[in-house]
């Protein structure tokens, strides 16, 4: 079975993000970039399924600037077989990303698409669901377990009150939550091997997709700062402050 996974290049989640002084976006110059953590979990899942003999080929797709090739190479070093970069200078919004992925999926015909549940930069949590909708496929979001069972997949997903069990027909789109697995560290020999794996570079035009943004960002700003707090010496002082100053008890 062929699997398609996606990998978004994002600002490293441990980096403090700064808003540009003109309010048009965030600083990205000389900032450490990485594979979106949820995409990394998606790639890891595909690789584990290949190691278990369920998956025969893993195709990894990234969408963005030429630097996204690095993100694809990371996924290949983890074990993906082949990469596709849809190269575009401007950031594609989730609907455009979903349309580009649909065009690639129509051509590649995977049985399963594994994506991260959300990108930790714009926090939209939309792409997987949108891809599934455009393909007319079932979806399982926020999954913590997937087992392939012939023409369907048994799913455990994380929901607000606990866990949910689903069966989805294949082909399907699933999106990875934190507890699906713990991604491996890439090793140097595998990084070297990844450099020799095939990586195709295509443009949105070649896929016949309109990527024009539908949302216009008018401005970005930092959230209002909290007023600074105080250190208290002991529990007595704390309870006193909560009762008389904060009045929450």
């Amino acid at each position: 079975m062929k699997v398609l996974v996606t990998a978004k290049r994002v600002i490293d989640p441990y980096v403090k993000v700064r808003v540009k002084s003109d309010g048009t976006g965030v600083e990205t110059a000389n900032i450490k970039m990485t594979i979106n953590p949820f995409c990394e979990i998606a790639v890891e899942q595909a690789v584990r399924m290949k190691e278990a003999g369920i998956v025969t080929e893993i195709v990894v797709v990234s969408i963005g600037t030429i630097q996204c090739q690095e993100t694809i190479r990371t996924a290949m070093a983890m074990g993906a077989d082949r990469g596709i970069l849809v190269e575009m200078a401007e950031e594609a919004q989730p609907l455009a990303v979903a349309k580009l992925l649909k065009a690639i999926i129509d051509k590649e015909q995977p049985r399963l698409v594994i994506m991260g549940k959300q990108a930790i930069d714009d926090d939209s949590n939309q792409c997987g669901q949108m891809v599934a909708a455009l393909l007319g496929w079932p979806q399982a979001t926020h999954i913590s377990n997937v087992t392939i069972n012939g023409d369907s997949a048994e799913i455990t997903r994380e929901i607000d009150g606990g866990l949910e069990k689903l069966t989805v027909n294949l082909p399907a789109v699933v999106t990875a939550d934190l507890r699906l697995n713990e991604p491996r560290y890439v090793t140097l020999p595998n990084i070297m091997k990844a450099k020799k794996k095939p990586l195709e570079n295509i443009k949105p035009d070649a896929l016949g997709v309109d990527v024009k943004p539908r949302l216009k960002t008018l401005k970005v700003e930092e959230p209002a700062k909290r007023s600074s707090g105080v250190k208290v010496a002991d529990v007595k002082e704390l309870v006193n402050k909560l009762k008389t100053e904060a009045r929450v008890l």
């Binding site: 600002i11 989640p13 403090k16 993000v17 808003v19 965030v26 919004q93 989730p94 609907l95 930790i120 930069d121 714009d122 926090d123 939209s124 949590n125 939309q126 943004p213 539908r214 949302l215 216009k216 960002t217 008018l218 401005k219 970005v220 700003e221 930092e222 959230p223």
Partner: peptide, 28 residues
Amino acid sequence: QQISDISSVVSADTFVRPTYAGNVMATV
């Protein structure tokens, strides 16, 4: 194009939403 997780309504077509783990507020 869905507008996710809005924290304020500016007008019928303009909204504020948190991005980057709430460290950046975007008006879209």
